[in-house]
Simulated scan of single mutants.
Amino acid sequence: MTAPHSPGASTPPGDQDAPALSIAVVAALPQTAPPLVEALRALGHRVPVVIGHRRPADWPGHVLGEHDLPPGVDLAVPSRTEAVAGLLHAYAVDVAVSYGYPRKLPAAAVSAPRLGTVNCHPSDLPSYRGPNPVGWAVRNGEDRIGVTWHRMDAELDTGSVLARTTIALDDQVWSFTGVNSRVLEAASEMLPQVLRRLVRGDEGEPQPQREDTWAGFFTEDYATVDWSAQATHIHTQVRAWNIAGHHPRVQGPVAVIDGTRWRLRRTTLTQPPLGTGRRVTCGTGDLWVLAADPLD
């Protein structure tokens, strides 16, 4: 996939890739930090440190550990986000590259690297700002999502754009991990362009001013499955929740089957092989539950 240049971001004749830089990666998950480190090192840059995040008490998976990183890359896990600025200053990095970090970085951290901090967001900003962009894209029936690199500023997902592209969001993708691999591939291909613009002092393009672009966590109003709804609606609801991943406060999608509460993991609108799944008649059409976790 070749990512299109943003308007005004064409490479002048003779302009080469960015010189070797010292770059900190700010990412909390083993699915995100190692591929970014690998992509940056493949471009000839040095990654002295990855800044991770402490595992929340209710987190169901595992967070990034030192064994996930290659030799020569430190892992720093600050107890609070206010400490991130000090870490970036201590490592004296040129750039910080953020991807999916679960906390808002303070302004002091964003401005600590010599050339600033950039973030990759899986939407076509300013659409779907916030912590759940892909979940909302699925919920709204999108078949493509954006991938945007932007400068970080004091707010969330509002900084000027350095590079963007779009990728397919087909109905075969059912998990954060599945989406993440595609987003990272597209994001990595845009990194040379992003770093060139930083080195040139290019501020990027300001995002258009738009209202109602926030993509927050799903709430209770979308957490319960109503079997009287259309089968397609329920199928989308299940996929949206599973792509959204872990929710810190609300569990979904929850359905009652034969008097038992289940969290639905996978459904299909087409009849699976004999003996596979559980058919449920919905308001319009049938849905087959392929995977679910009991809650009672």
Rank of each mutant, 00 (worst) to 15 (best):
V194A: 03
T260W: 14
A291M: 06
W59N: 08
A18K: 13
P253S: 03
P7Y: 02
A83D: 15
P34D: 08
L40Q: 04
V26I: 15
S127N: 09
T276L: 08
G252N: 03
G216L: 07
C120H: 00
V118I: 09
V280S: 07
L198Y: 13
N242P: 03
F218W: 12
V49M: 02
V254L: 04
E38S: 13
D293W: 07
T219Y: 12
R46D: 08
V95I: 08
A255T: 12
G65L: 00
A291G: 13
H233W: 13
P35N: 07
I167F: 08
D226M: 04
V254F: 07
S181L: 13
T224P: 00
T284E: 12
L87W: 07
E220M: 10
V110L: 04
S79L: 10
N242I: 01
P30G: 06
G275T: 11
D212T: 01
E82R: 14
A92T: 11
V26K: 12
F217N: 14
G135A: 07
V63M: 14
M1Q: 09
A83R: 15
W227E: 04
R261F: 04
N242S: 02
P30F: 08
Q230Y: 05
W262N: 10
A244H: 11
V63T: 15
E220T: 14
T32S: 13
D202E: 10
I23N: 02
S123P: 01
D258H: 14
T270S: 12
W227T: 11
N119Y: 00
G86K: 01
I23M: 01
V63N: 02
L191V: 10
G130I: 08
L115G: 08
V289R: 02
A90S: 13
A9I: 00
P272M: 01
N140Y: 12
R200K: 06
P272Q: 05
R197D: 03
R80C: 02
V250G: 01
G277P: 04
D153Y: 12
R182A: 07
H62G: 09
P248W: 02
G283C: 05
M152D: 12
G285S: 12
G201L: 04
A291F: 09
S160H: 15
P70S: 12
A39T: 07
V183W: 05
G283L: 08
Q271D: 01
